[in-house]
């Protein structure tokens, strides 16, 4: 299941609307301690973002996803899928 969602997330990063990626990334971050989603976010930043960043902020998606993955860690551990 996890591998399948990761594969779909990676494909969505390349071919699907950006909301699809965030939806899947959110799911992965809630359901699993997903380091894969961080890698995909980093890949997206490297591919789509110019070096100047977005409003001057470099690696925006990676930062957002890191916050999501690390931020949801306590929730994942204690409330959702123990």
């Amino acid at each position: 299941m996890r591998l399948f969602v990761v594969a779909v997330t990676f494909l969505s990063a390349l071919f699907a609307p950006v909301w699809a990626f965030f939806l899947l990334a959110g799911f992965l971050a809630v359901r699993y301690p997903s380091w894969e989603v961080m890698l995909i976010a980093f890949f997206m930043d490297l591919v789509y973002l110019p070096i100047g960043g977005f409003f001057g902020i470099p690696f925006v998606i990676t930062i957002l996803v890191c916050i999501l993955v690390w931020g949801l860690d306590p929730l994942r551990n204690q409330l959702v899928f123990k």
Partner: peptide, 13 residues
């Protein structure tokens, strides 16, 4: 070779 809808930053490859 990239989809504009996939890019959150309005960039194209």
């Amino acid at each position: 070779v990239s989809s504009l809808k996939s890019s959150p930053f309005s960039t194209l490859i």
